[in-house]
Amino acid sequence: MKRMVATKYRDTGRPSKARTLLEVWFANMSAYRAEIVIWMLTGSIPLIMLAVWIGKAQAAGGAVGDFTPQRFAAYFLAAWVSQQLVVAWVAWELDLQIRQGILSAKLLRPLDPLWEHLAMHVTERLVRVPLAIIVIVVGLFIVPGTQLTPDLPHALLYLLSINLAFLIRFLIAYCVGILAFWFEQAIAVEELYYSIAMFLTGSFAPLDLYPVWARTIIEWLPFPYVIYYPVQILTGEANGLEIVRIIAVQLAWITIFGVLRSLLWRRGLRRYGAVGA
């Protein structure tokens, strides 16, 4: 049996590497489906904020600024789904692998460990889909008249944009995890990210409601391109050239963090060898 699997993938060449990784990790992640459901519900801030802002809108007689309960519902349901789709825990994986030396075995493979981490994250997303659909349906039921997306093109462009958003988040986490080559508190840095990301990505409120000075600063950071801007595409707030701009900026951030990751990785590996781990 084992041999059969080996021959099956041996002669199909390069694409089969990706396929093997994805198949293996999908099976792996499916085993954790109960845990994944719980983790999904733990990242509940957008849903809590949905309730808070709708409560505010109702108390103010229907709307906060030009945000109606329906517009809040569309924004936060989209933000919640987006948060599910960009989750990255690769910093923890790297930290563990580097500090415990598990990385040594991985380095023997003819494949950058990045691809295995990527496969792990991508397949885990698939396990999240069923509950995501349930939450959206319940949300649309609780706030009648909510329109999540105006048309198919916006939904498809969102799919592209949220994948780019995931890559930004994944590469940031990867760079943080690599820090474990140099010092022991890489995870503490990652936790710092969590303590402020909620406000910088737009999970807490649409950036339109931020004070102008804060919005100006945040626009120059990668964080709004992880949740706020993809959500703008899905809900139809962004159109035409604005969508092109969002995707271009996302690609730019991916390039920046991708190059940074390669540099850090190469220097880190040299150091890893030097301590003889």
Partner: peptide
Amino acid sequence: GLLILLGDGQ
């Protein structure tokens, strides 16, 4: 965050 939530004066 509270500042944002109270930004509309309500």
